[in-house]
Structures are given as structure tokens and as C-alpha cells.
Nucleic acid binder design. Sequence first.
DNA 1: AAGTGGTCTAGACCACCAT
DNA 2: TGGTGGTCTAGACCACTTA
Lengths: 240, 240
Amino acid sequence: MNTIEGGPLYKGVQRALLEQLSNGALKPGQLIPSERQLATEFAVSIGTLRKAIDDLVEQRILIRQQGKGTFVATHDRERLLFYFFHLVPQVGVKSYPLIEFVFFQKALATTEIAQRLQIAVGAPIFHIRNRLSLESDIVSVDDLFLEQSRFATLTAAQFRDRPNTIYNLYQEAFGYTVVKTDERLRAVACAEEHAKLLKVSPSAPVLTIRRSAIDMRGETVEFRISTVNTASYEYFAELL
Amino acid sequence: MNTIEGGPLYKGVQRALLEQLSNGALKPGQLIPSERQLATEFAVSIGTLRKAIDDLVEQRILIRQQGKGTFVATHDRERLLFYFFHLVPQVGVKSYPLIEFVFFQKALATTEIAQRLQIAVGAPIFHIRNRLSLESDIVSVDDLFLEQSRFATLTAAQFRDRPNTIYNLYQEAFGYTVVKTDERLRAVACAEEHAKLLKVSPSAPVLTIRRSAIDMRGETVEFRISTVNTASYEYFAELL
DNA sequence: AAGTGGTCTAGACCACCAT
DNA sequence: TGGTGGTCTAGACCACTTA
């Protein structure tokens, strides 16, 4: 096979599987071969094969289902809500956000955006703005920044009336599976432009979330700044 | 032994170990018996014993060191900084906060505090206030709330000039090991009382962090509200 | 009934650390 | 050298799903 030595056997198997996942040989939603099959393919014991898969399951790249098989994870609404969406009501239960499209435009990377997307300052980017509501309260304005060369065929239409999540779009149309995010939060006085959309008074205190979305290869695929009105909602994180 | 059936064998072993950890039979910093010893004690195979320990290591309750043994984790400065302290400079690298003691007083639980600490409204609590600085900038005012009955012998002196972290105090003096935190963040206008301590103008936008610190038994040991000036620092979280 | 993942065994050998 | 955790094997059997 193709295990590329240098460390533990199961790490080699893991790399081989990750390669097949990131080059599209194994696609989201697909059933992968059974553990017994993979074990004989890679010529390792079933225990070693399971150990290789364990880590991928923990990172939620693969999903095991007893009796059915092991599947490549997809970015469905559930996954978004539970793992990537951290705004919850101060009282009550979490729900799905309603997304309103505001605009889609081409722009050039500022210093901050360039740094986060690991591209050159002034490189061409897409700038998409959405507005999010929860239970009919306007909660957030999201500004998304994408490298144009990575998402060359992207159009505004793909952001209007999406049935699925945006990460799902990246996954299905461009082959980028977001597996991890970094988030940096600050409290600031709201800019006028955002205040209008959020329907708050200018310079009201708002929360900004700067999120880098990172794919299986470790590359930052999207940088996003969310501007959040935390009057009735708040940011929630469970740590460790 | 004492494995208490009802599910997988390794879960029973895990429960037995957790019991020994939370009742003090195994103390922080201590070397626990070797895997081979524990396997024979619990009358399970070495593989099963390792699987039991795997989860505890992942939760950072135990620390494995190849060639040396497995140890009960302690709340040292490293652990605090890397896992429980989320304020970082907007540019530059993370560092240890300087903690200034402000006051220690007795109080009664408000609705919010009671709810978070899972005690009755009006129950007696301790309220401790500290001020945190990073690189000589004042960054945060922390208000800590503890149930008096849980920390009956606590004194102000224990908060003045501490060499170690506060979670270390809970662990060493009261036997509570914090293994997980929940955090809820909002942007608000700063209250006057906090504005003075933070040296910001009243009603400046500040970040509030409401943190519940949860121990091995799943109980909330401390509720804390941090009021943070995010002019030069920000809250950082790595997710998934 | 056949196929899948989940648990468990009873070892072997390797890598690392202390003495 | 002897003890520790880390990797790996070649199975067996259980629990769950689907046909």
C-alpha cells in the first residue's frame, strides 16, 4: 500500500485515509469500506486500523454507526448548530438562525484579512455580508471574506436562498471541509453601517467575533467577522 | 473488585478510578499504579485497562509519561494558562496575568448566581474580587462567587499573595478539581464601579464573561463574572 | 442470517526513563 | 537492567442494523 513510514503504523494509515478524504476519493456522506476490509487492504490488524480511525472520528471527519458502517461527515444543519454556531438566547433554548443575504462583492485584502487568510495584502477577495436572526430578533451581521483564487467560480446566487449551510457550500462545491475554527472576541462600539442593519443605536456596545475556518489540510478557507447584538443573546462556549 | 456492572467493562474500571480520584484516594501529583498492576487488580486485560485510562487522559484528569508512569493532574500555572485563560493580546504572545486582590466579602446569592451554582436564592456565598493585568495593562476585573457551605473554612488571606492559581487552591485545600468550564460572553456598557478599576470611561464597551467551573463530579464549584477591557486584548477560543 | 462497528483478551515487542 | 507507557497482533464474541 501507500502508508509512508516514519512513525507508528496507525499514523501512516491515518495519513493515507486523510489523503483519500482531502483529494476527494472519499466524498462527504459516503460509506467507507468496513474496518475488516480496510485492515486487510492496509495489511494491519483490526485493532491498529480502529486506532487510526479513532482520531478521525474524534475530529468528526468520520462518523461511526454501529451495525451500519463508517461514513464521511457532512456539513448539515445539525453539525453547524452544535459545533460552529455559538449564539444562544440568554434564557431559553438554542435554535436555527434565519439568514438574510445583504450583498456579495469583490474587494482587496486588507492587512488583517490577508494575515488571516494567509495571502498577500491587496490580493483579490470576495466580501459577502449576511444578516442573522433568531426567533425574529436581529442578532448578528456577518462579513465573510474568501480568497478569489480559491473560490474562482463563486457567484452571488450561491448565497441567496441557500437550503443548506455555507460550510456545506464550501464542502460540496469547492471540496473544502471545515474541521476547526479559531475565534477571537472583542467588545466594541458599533459602527454606523452595522448599527443600521442590527437596528441598534450607533456606538451601542456590540460583540465582534473574528473567526478563521480551517479545513482538513490546515488551511484557512474563510475569515469572518460577526458583529453581534448581545442584548438578548450571548456567545456560549464549553471548554475542555 | 468493585467495578459495578451495567455497561462495558472499561467504563466500570473508569468509574472505579474516578471514584478513587474524587474521594482523595488518588491525590493530585501522585503516581498511580502501573497499567499492568491495575489490569491485574481489576482483573481485566491490559488493553481494556488502557482504554479506561484513555478517556481520563483526554479529559486531562490523568497525565501519561512514557517510561515514568501515569500521574494525577495538578492545576499548575501552565494548565491554567493553556486551558482556562483565554485572554490574549491582539498582537503578540500570551503571557501570565498579574492578579491584584480587591476584596473578599460574604453575600447572598442573587437569582443568577443561585442558578449557576445550583443553590437556593439568598443562600450564603463568598464574593471575591480580583483585578488582572497583562504586561502592565489592566485587562479585567473578576468577580468570583462561591457557595459558603462548600468552602466553609475559606479566608481572605488565602486570596492575598497566592503563589499558585485559584483553581489550585480549590484543588489542594478543598478537593475540587476543575475539569471543565462553560463560558457565556456579552458586550455591555461598563458599570461605574468596574470602570474605575479598569480605568476606562463609564459606559465604555466591555466584554463580560460568565464562567461556570465544573469539577469531576459534574458540580459547579465556582461562578465567575469577568469584566474585560478588549481595547488591546481579546478573548480567544479554538473550537473542535 | 449476514454484515457492521464495539468490546475484550493474552500476549509480544518497542521506546523511553531511571538507577 | 528493570520498569513504565506505546504499538501491534490475531483472533473471539457481543450489539446493532438491514434484508
